[in-house]
Write a protein that binds this DNA or RNA. Structure first.
Lengths: 156, 156
DNA sequence: TTCGGGACCGAACGATCGTTAGGCTAATCC
DNA sequence: GGATTAGCCTAACGATCGTTCGGTCCCGAA
């Protein structure tokens, strides 16, 4: 396909970016929807990380736009996207907050930092993850480390 | 300064990228050198994260090249840079390995994953950290979460 | 004081990019 | 079967990019 041919499907390059950005938002939100809102929070965190990494690996192009390239959106669209992205991050944060409130996670947990670290790790993966990787297994390693930490019980 | 004027300082755009990439590697390695190789590993991990985030915040342009833009290096230079970058990551990993071997960190710690999560969080910061941010305090929050985890002692 | 050289400007080059327009082909509809 | 149309190609446009070149300005060495 030649570059000019793309314009029988889109109006402009900016429109295309916008469509892919929305597609990305939908993909990540939909993946997160598959996480039940009942049951042990620990399991749900693991499921959320699995869902996120699966989208990254299986829809790398779209994920790249959702994670990085959205910066080139302009005006109202950019504002709209940022709100949508914040909502996604908030869903992660809510998971950690709920875990703390239910007593499944430590009472002094900083849920903002937890969401930041979890999503940073998961987002950064778009720079190196390639299709066919064992994303579930990777998500589980992330989860184990984030839940129990590096220090372990011995030191307390 | 006009764009043409840059060429009295550099040979080509690729050369400039290469120089900045090397400058970035030096900045991060030098920052890491300030971390003592004695003393509690926990403190050294905190210091390493502080050092990294400080470089990101204070030399954002250079850090961006070290973290992301190096991908556009070509040929031998790219290979050389990748090796240098791997060495940097290895220094972090060594810290976690040492902590485990000295018994300061959990005996079943996966130091590879630990280094990946720590550096992912620290690297991702280049996308949102701005000059003037409280980087030390941020590094400390990362460290606290990574060391003790979200679950806490209550669950074991 | 002169003079050489480094730093920058201004204009231009070829290449690439986003976009448009016109035309060909093949499937789809009445 | 003929007309329509969706999907792609080709060629060209203006804009921008990386780069070159000749010229101007200014500083420091001789």
């Amino acid at each position: 396909m030649q570059k000019g041919s793309v314009y029988s499907h889109i109006e402009s390059k900016a429109d295309l970016l916008w469509e892919v950005a929305r597609e990305g938002a939908e993909a990540f939100h939909t993946a997160l929807d598959s996480v039940p809102d009942e049951g042990p929070v620990v399991d749900r965190i693991r499921a959320a990380l699995r869902a996120h990494l699966r989208v990254v690996a299986e829809q790398l192009d779209i994920a790249t736009v959702f994670i990085r390239e959205w910066r080139y959106l302009e005006g109202e669209r950019r504002a709209q996207f940022v709100a949508e992205r914040r909502r996604y991050e908030e869903r992660f944060r809510a998971l950690f907050r709920e875990g703390r409130e239910l007593g499944e996670l430590r009472t002094d947990l900083d849920d903002g930092t937890a969401a930041l670290v979890a999503l940073s790790s998961a987002n950064w993966a778009y720079t190196w993850l390639r299709l066919g990787a064992e994303t579930d297994e990777l998500a589980d390693r992330f989860t184990a480390l984030l839940l129990d930490g590096m220090r372990g019980y011995a030191s307390r």
